[in-house]
Design a protein around this nucleic acid. Structure first.
Length: 199
DNA sequence: GTCGAGATTGACT
DNA sequence: GTCAATCTCGACT
């Protein structure tokens, strides 16, 4: 099977040093993998948003603001930033060199491996509703705050090399209406016409 | 100690 | 369209 776990190769730390907007764009097509006792689940990243540290009113790190939960954003690129939003966990990739608190939010993935396990964790009628949102995908993949502060270079939670995405759309981010002019920044990237993109 | 807000989702009017 | 679930943490009394 092409989807065998041994075919997954984590992207190297150097991948995460590219400028945050390019990173957000280039993460599309790669594979988010989570290995647990229950089994392996993985999905192709089809939607991301980037948050630009100090200068982005929508970012948790706006104006260099530091909080307990955002400390990891100031660490080196490739770290895992998990944030709890109401009843859901959201996964971010820390970007920007150490001290620069940029991040990329993974908003949606396309189920690839362990679909049965995902459905067990998150029963849905339509497969397109399984991982088509930032809170949905963490639930389906079993990602919790335990992964906070680890890196995407190694199991159990890592990003593996996927395939290039040809047709990419760019637009405004979602769910940040309280962020002044930052709400209109074109920092959201998705694979055009992919049915697993949120909303 | 208390209050409120938030990068979401699903159920309901 | 509206609204509550549920939890972390900063701001304030």
């Amino acid at each position: 099977m092409m989807t065998d776990i041994h075919t997954f190769k984590p992207l190297p730390p150097s991948f995460y040093t590219q400028p945050v907007r390019e990173l957000a764009r280039n993460l599309l097509g790669h594979i988010l993998v989570h290995e647990t006792d229950e089994g392996v689940t993985a999905g192709i990243i089809v939607e991301t948003e980037c948050y630009l540290g100090m200068d982005d009113q929508a970012a948790h790190s706006f104006k260099g603001r530091r909080m307990k939960r955002t400390e990891i954003m100031y660490d080196s690129p490739g770290h895992v930033y998990i944030y709890q939003m109401h009843t859901h966990n959201l996964v971010n990739v820390v970007a920007g060199e150490e001290g620069i608190a940029h991040a990329v939010l993974i908003r949606a993935v396309e189920p690839l491996v362990g679909i049965n396990l995902m459905q067990k964790r998150r029963p849905v009628d339509k497969i397109t509703n399984l991982t088509s949102g930032p809170g949905k995908l963490t639930r389906a993949l079993g990602i919790t705050k335990e992964a906070y502060g680890s890196t995407f270079f190694n199991p159990p939670l890592y990003i593996a090399k996927g395939e290039d995405v040809k047709d990419i759309s760019v637009g405004k981010r979602i769910g940040i209406d309280n962020s002044g002019e930052a709400k209109d920044y074109p920092y959201r990237f998705w694979e055009t016409d992919n049915p697993f993109v949120s909303r």
